[in-house]
Design a protein around this nucleic acid. Sequence first.
DNA 1: GCGATTAGTGAACGATTAGTCAATAATAAT
DNA 2: ATTATTATTGACTAATCGTTCACTAATCGC
Lengths: 121, 121
Amino acid sequence: MARPREFDEAKVLASARQLFASNGYHGTSIDDLVQATGLLRGSLYKAFGSKRNLFEKILAEIADDFKATPESLDLLTVALKDLAAVDKPIRLLCLKIVGKNSKTYANLLGANLLAKMKENK
Amino acid sequence: MARPREFDEAKVLASARQLFASNGYHGTSIDDLVQATGLLRGSLYKAFGSKRNLFEKILAEIADDFKATPESLDLLTVALKDLAAVDKPIRLLCLKIVGKNSKTYANLLGANLLAKMKENK
DNA sequence: GCGATTAGTGAACGATTAGTCAATAATAAT
DNA sequence: ATTATTATTGACTAATCGTTCACTAATCGC
């Protein structure tokens, strides 16, 4: 009962996720997101409200059924390092992912962090 | 044979290190550094050249005799996540720190990352 | 005293930041 | 065809970003 969306939300979220995962939260600008997703700023804001909200949505999505892929581990690292200290909802999503497996996740997160170092020789 | 410095370089570096460690590289602005160190922008740039250079100096300093304190682990995490992918000298300093102990450091880095999550309940 | 050299000062720069908004467009229901 | 509703567009804003620089100040050897 209104104009339909022209973009595929899942694809937009996938592009944004990749950017946040590899460049961090503060290292990813709205312009970066505009470029990567193809959406214009206005549409991005109408659809997701804010950069912070977009990030939370992405994190919530992967928290819902977490798989320890490099990208997801990167995103969890970004959430923990760039936002968790000052953003309770983000912190809670991190807790939801990790649960009682903090030993396991410590290993996964650390190994994933170090892996980046070696890729570029 | 010139005007002497009025600031204590070690103290300035300590303040900057703390900021970078807790807020990340992109999360730390020059204004933040000016505030925390007490130095004015001009002095900061005369002494250290650039934000990137200041960070490298700090990382080099801790790389020289690395102790796995929370702050140093935070700083290594920041170096790895915010800079290593696009900055070879930084990457090499990370490698120097980790050496052949990547299993050990994976655990330390991961545990340190997760610790932040629990502090704020 | 006088140069030479280096440090401190802070206004200013262009670029980029996250976010807004009035105009236009596309759909569905009546 | 008209109306209601939601989406797209991109120019715009105020703030902040990292960096520069002309100026002043303090020390040294002479």
